[in-house]
């Protein structure tokens, strides 16, 4: 990339991205490498998901990446039968919030998990995936760990 060119990698995120330029564009690079990542403040240790470039706790602007691993707990979810412009070809799909303890992650539940199997409190794990139009994203899958 030429020096004066803006890093617009974030425009690759999700079915339709509404943002392009952000200081946490390495999030996209990490997804390309198969990792879902958040940031941790190097100075005060606070963890952030979604990742951010600056820390409102201690005002530091130095972050390190950490990988979202292991199981989280399903806080809530909803299956959409109706969708906003840009997503109507994908219905039905399920959005969800998953709690990892120190942080929560918002995303979609993988289409392979039957709707009737979903319940608040169930364990899920996150995985890097592609959207139906071939773009970068992540999904929650049923945890294989019993």
């Amino acid at each position: 990339m030429a020096k004066n060119e803006l890093d617009t990698r974030f425009s690759e995120f999700g079915t339709v991205s509404f943002a392009a330029v952000t200081r946490v564009n390495d999030f996209i690079g990490n997804l390309e490498n198969g990792k879902l990542t958040g940031t941790r403040c190097v100075k005060c240790g606070k963890t952030f998901f979604p990742p951010r470039a600056q820390c409102c706790e201690c005002l530091a602007a130095e972050m390190e990446w950490f990988e979202v691993t292991g199981e989280g707990e399903l806080v809530s979810y909803s299956t959409l039968q109706y969708a906003p412009t840009g997503f109507t070809d994908e219905v039905p799909y399920t959005i969800a919030l998953v709690d990892y303890g120190d942080y929560k992650v918002f995303g979609r539940i993988d289409g392979s998990v039957p709707q009737e199997d979903l319940s608040v409190g169930m364990k899920l794990k996150a995985a890097v995936a592609r959207t139906s139009n071939g773009r970068l994203t992540y999904v929650f899958e049923r945890s294989q760990v019993k």
Binding site: Y82, G86, I95, F106, G107
Partner: peptide
């Protein structure tokens, strides 16, 4: 818009998550 809208969210769906919870 940066972290949620790319998943295809809308107001009814967010409130639906509150209802489910």
């Amino acid at each position: 818009i940066q972290w949620e809208s790319p998943f295809g969210t809308m107001m009814p769906a967010y409130y639906a998550m509150h209802a489910q919870a």
